[in-house]
Amino acid sequence: MNDIKQLLWNGELNVLVSIDPSFLMKGSPREIAVLRIRVPRETYLVNYMPLIWNKIKSFLSFDPLTDSEKYFWFEHNKTPIPWNYPVGVLFDCLAGKSATFTTSFENQVKDVLTFLRIHLVMGDSLPPTIIPIASSKTQAEKFWFHQWKQVCFILNGSSKAIMSLSVNEARKFWGSVITRNFQDFIEISNKISSSRPRHIPLIIQTSRTSGTFRISQPTISMTGVNPTLKDIEGDILDVKEGINGNDVMVICQGIEIPWHMLLYDLYSKLRSFDGFLYITLVPIKGGDKASSEL
């Protein structure tokens, strides 16, 4: 199983970050406003803020680390995107939204979103639901650790397993994300996991026609059962919005998942680096549904 996890851990995406001209002094070279980076799927965009600030620091029209009246956030096609989801999850959502997501090789080579375009913008107030990007270097670490606390509680009914990590282990855990140390990550995340989970930490993302995303976090009990995705179809699909199982692809870690997959297997193999299993529902357009399976 660790082979699959290693593949996911090593997965990377090309990200093109463009910086809004309002950040820069007049006359700044155009090329300074564009940053092309290769980013692991299993990390946060906000971890790249020091790199971004460093690249443009000589051309900034203000000091982003001390100017508390300015807010920054990322956008994709003028829609704000949250930094607090793994980059791979954002990609799955945005690629699905732009109707070019596919897992079939033929379609990939001719018409696929090959990189994630994001735009760094600023304003006097934040868009709704967007967590501000703080100047604190520990913002992402603290958020991520809280995610794991939730995951630990959902899995075990108590957050004791994660709270019992020593200070060194807790630092090593986050350090493994930053330094991309897979062995350290697996070693510590296994201490939090359970072979007999009470519930599965699951987050469902569904793109809406308005351009926004609907996020839901159903409670999936595992006590005495081992359901397939089909068994929990009602929890996954948004019945109120009239979504039918035949109309959507279930995408996880960039892979189309068959409905007969066992949820626990899916979780243990494809969970994200914050401990949650993210499922993205991508509308099927005109029979483009790919037939690939795990």
Partner: peptide, 23 residues
């Protein structure tokens, strides 16, 4: 675990000391 068959995730349980850590 013996009843269930050993799960992959519990291998590390072996190195857990039953005593409280001083921290």
């Amino acid at each position: 675990q013996e009843l269930d068959g050993v799960g992959d995730w519990e291998d590390l349980q072996d190195d857990i000391d039953d005593s409280l850590r001083v921290d």
